[in-house]
């Protein structure tokens, strides 16, 4: 069993916002419905769900590229805008989560590619760390 400690909002409010465990490397915190076993992300503030750490690796389920700066509010990222990719990542046996997709050229993205969790700072004036995945690095020969 993973000895995961859940980061409480009161301890690290701005940094993690209850999205990540404080493992090294970090993991996303999902919510498992106590009766049905269904896993969702993020973990709802609802006694029917218990917080569970999610797997760090998965496959790309679908994606798109955000080509324009989203409206602020609610978007709190930097004024300067570069397009970024958005992924739905299937974590086997758990759930499909929405996250940023980093460290990959847009033309190299393909459904089914192997990804691992690689959270990224939102930047600008925000201290938010955003759930993000990056391609699993090929093992050095």
């Amino acid at each position: 069993m993973p000895s995961t400690r859940i980061v409480r909002e009161s301890l690290k409010p701005a940094m993690h916002n209850s999205l990540f465990t404080d493992d090294d490397p970090v993991r996303l915190i999902g919510g498992r419905h106590r009766e049905s076993g269904r896993i969702v992300f993020p973990c709802p503030a609802d006694a029917a769900y218990e917080a569970v750490p999610l797997g760090r690796k998965g496959q790309l389920w679908s994606y798109t590229v955000q080509r324009f700066r989203p409206k602020s509010p609610p978007y709190a990222g930097p004024e300067a805008f570069e397009p970024w990719a958005i992924a739905y990542v299937e974590l086997p046996g758990e759930v499909i989560v929405e996250a940023w997709l980093t460290d990959v050229a847009f033309e190299d993205i393909h459904i089914g590619m192997e990804l691992e969790l690689s959270p990224q700072p939102l930047g600008g004036n925000s201290s938010l760390i955003v759930p993000a995945f990056a391609p699993v690095k090929a093992l050095a020969a």
């Binding site: 999205l19 955000q66 989203p70 609610p74 970024w84 958005i86 939102l122 925000s126 938010l128 955003v130």
Partner: peptide, 21 residues
């Protein structure tokens, strides 16, 4: 709130990701 802060609160992303799949 973080979901909007991070730029996920954009309907076009959903439609694009749904048709991509």
């Amino acid at each position: 709130e973080w979901y909007g802060d991070a730029g996920f609160m954009v309907t076009t992303q959903f439609f694009a990701a749904k048709i991509m799949r």
